[in-house]
């Protein structure tokens, strides 16, 4: 117990790997939109916003995948549920007709974000409750199956745009803040991401997180200790789904557009890649992974139209020579999963 308490530090954050990073990162992130303005390149802010939002999703997936050992290939479903909650509430707000006859639409972010998290949490509870009856490769595939079902369900829902998706004409509003301003929206996302990551690190360091880690290492041993494994895993899966739903809601606001593509299996794959790329089962791994993947995509795409021909072999090389992900570059001790 005292070892984990040592690791956590004051904010419940593991301070040891790259202490300097913790001091420099907030300054850089806060200064970023102003630097972008000074350079006259507003695309930097939107790129950073996208990275920050996907950090939330990747870190949430990592709670299930890295800490809980539940390899979900269907997390894009929760991204989509979060996004569609925003989109559907907005379209009902505009039309003035309540959803299902009793849920009024809204464009208030203080309502839509919690609604998105509740909706995706419910979806995760349903999918998790069924999927967790299997394990291993079967778990990977059954989560994929449920995500694909939702994907095709939304494709066939003509009332909400079907295949084409739906446009959210205006970003959800916040009191006292103008979310239509890209810089303001960036800071909203940044604060939410920091809060969510802080919460995740508290969860990982708590008794709940330790039990979850124990289950990942040996289910049988934890069962022998009298731990209700299924309930712990389901709880972690639901929290993970809620975080991904939050990211989906922000993504819908950010691009002012939601479509079934948000829950396509390639999106699930991309979230997984971010986590693996950065380092499975580490707090900062998914953050690094999301930043690296989207950053590399953007840089390579600016360099050549055929950027994937460079990206592909690069990923292979990273797997072969950095088995613990990019996080191991920052700190040799980053491997919580292997430690």
């Amino acid at each position: 117990m005292d070892r984990s308490a040592l690791q956590r530090g004051a904010l419940g954050v593991d301070l040891r790997p790259g202490r300097a990073l913790w001091l420099v990162a907030p300054v850089v992130l806060a200064a970023l939109p102003f630097v972008a303005d000074a350079l006259g390149d507003a695309s930097i802010t939107t790129l950073a916003t996208r990275i920050v939002i996907l950090c939330i999703a990747a870190a949430s997936l990592n709670l299930a995948l890295g800490y809980g050992g539940m390899v979900s290939f269907g997390h894009a479903a929760f991204l989509g549920v979060g996004g569609y909650t925003v989109g559907m509430l907005y379209s009902h707000f505009v039309a003035g007709a309540p959803f299902l006859g009793f849920v009024p639409g809204t464009d208030q972010m203080l309502l839509t974000l919690p609604a998105a998290m509740i909706a995706s949490g419910l979806a995760a509870a349903a999918i998790g409750a069924l999927s967790l009856r299997t394990g291993g490769v079967q778990f990977i595939m059954i989560t994929l199956a449920f995500a694909q079902m939702l994907f095709f369900l939304f494709v066939s829902l003509k009332a909400y745009g079907g295949d084409d998706g739906m446009i959210v004409r205006r970003r959800n509003a916040l009191p006292f803040l103008d979310t239509r301003n890209d810089t303001t929206f960036y800071f909203v996302c940044l604060v939410l991401a920091a809060a969510w990551l802080g919460l995740l690190s508290r969860i990982v360091g708590s008794r709940f997180g330790l039990v979850l880690g124990g289950i990942r290492q040996s289910e049988r041993r934890m069962a022998a200790l009298g731990v209700p494994i299924y309930r712990y895993k389901l709880a972690a899966f639901v929290i993970s789904g809620m975080g991904t739903g939050l990211a989906g809601a922000l993504l819908g606001n950010f691009s002012r557009f939601v479509s079934p593509d948000m829950m396509h299996w390639t999106q699930s794959g991309e979230l997984m890649i971010m986590v693996i790329l950065g380092g499975v089962g580490t707090l900062m791994g998914p953050v690094l992974g999301a930043a690296a993947l989207i950053g590399l995509e953007t840089v390579l795409a600016g360099w050549t139209e055929h950027w994937q021909v460079v990206m592909g072999p690069l990923l292979v090389l990273i797997v072969l020579y950095l088995p613990r992900g990019l996080g191991s570059l920052v700190s040799r001790k980053a491997g919580g999963r292997h430690g």
Binding site: G269, I276, L314, L315
Partner: peptide, 10 residues
């Protein structure tokens, strides 16, 4: 998964 995803892109 990561390595073979890279191969797909390539």
């Amino acid at each position: 998964v990561l390595a073979t995803f890279g191969l797909i892109l390539f």
